Simulated assay, not measured.
Amino acid sequence: MNKAEIDSLVRAFLVETAEPAKANPRVQQVVVRLVQDLFKAIEDLDLSPSEVWRGIEYFAEAGASHELGLLAAGLGLERFLDIRADEAEVRAGLTGGTPRTIEGPLYVAGAPESTGFARLDDGSEEANGEVLFMQGTVYGADGRPLPGARVEVWHANLLGGYSFFDPSQAPFNLRRTIVADSEGRYRLRSMVPMGYGCPPEGTTQRLLDQLGRHGRRPAHIHFFVSAPGHRKLTTQINIDGDEYLWNDFAFASREGLVPALTRVTDPRALREQGVDQPFASIDFDFRLLPEADGAPPAEVVRQRMAA
Rank of each mutant, 00 (worst) to 15 (best):
T101Y: 02
E113S: 11
G104V: 11
L77S: 09
A149C: 07
Y139M: 07
Q135C: 00
E152V: 11
D121C: 04
N157I: 05
G93W: 05
P112F: 07
G104T: 13
G74A: 15
G76E: 03
V151F: 05
E103R: 14
E130M: 13
E152R: 12
A92H: 10
P147R: 09
G148W: 09
T137V: 15
A109V: 04
G123V: 02
L94E: 01
A109K: 13
D166R: 08
G110D: 08
G160N: 07
S114P: 00
A118V: 10
E126G: 00
W154D: 00
E87A: 15
F165N: 02
V90H: 11
G110E: 10
A72P: 00
S124W: 02
G104K: 12
D82R: 13
A111R: 06
N157K: 03
T95M: 10
L106I: 09
E103C: 01
E103S: 11
G160H: 08
G93S: 06
P105A: 12
A127S: 14
G74H: 05
A88C: 05
G96C: 05
T137E: 08
G74Y: 03
A156H: 07
T137Y: 07
E103F: 00
Y107L: 13
A118C: 05
D82Y: 01
E113H: 06
R79W: 02
G136A: 11
G110W: 11
L70Q: 11
M134G: 12
P145S: 06
T115K: 14
L132C: 10
T115I: 15
A156I: 04
T137A: 07
F164I: 07
F133K: 12
R84N: 03
A141E: 14
L159A: 14
G129Y: 08
F133A: 08
A141K: 08
L70R: 11
G104D: 04
G123W: 02
T95D: 01
L81K: 14
A109W: 10
D86R: 14
L81Q: 14
G136T: 13
A85N: 09
D122W: 06
P99Y: 05
L120C: 12
F133M: 08
P147K: 10
G93P: 01
A127W: 02
A118H: 06
R150A: 09
T95R: 15
R79P: 00
P105I: 09
A109H: 12
A149Q: 06
L146D: 01
F165I: 02
M134E: 10
D121M: 01
G148Y: 10
F164N: 00
A111Q: 04
G110L: 09
F117W: 11
L158G: 04
P167W: 03
V151H: 02
L81T: 13
P167R: 15
S114Q: 12
L75D: 01
V90R: 15
E113Q: 15
G136I: 13
F165H: 09
Y107E: 11
H155I: 06
A141M: 02
A109R: 14
D122N: 13
V108S: 02
P145R: 04
A73W: 00
A85L: 10
E113P: 00
D122M: 03
R100Y: 03
N128K: 15
P99S: 06
A88H: 06
A72Y: 04
G116I: 11
S114F: 00
A92N: 10
R150H: 04
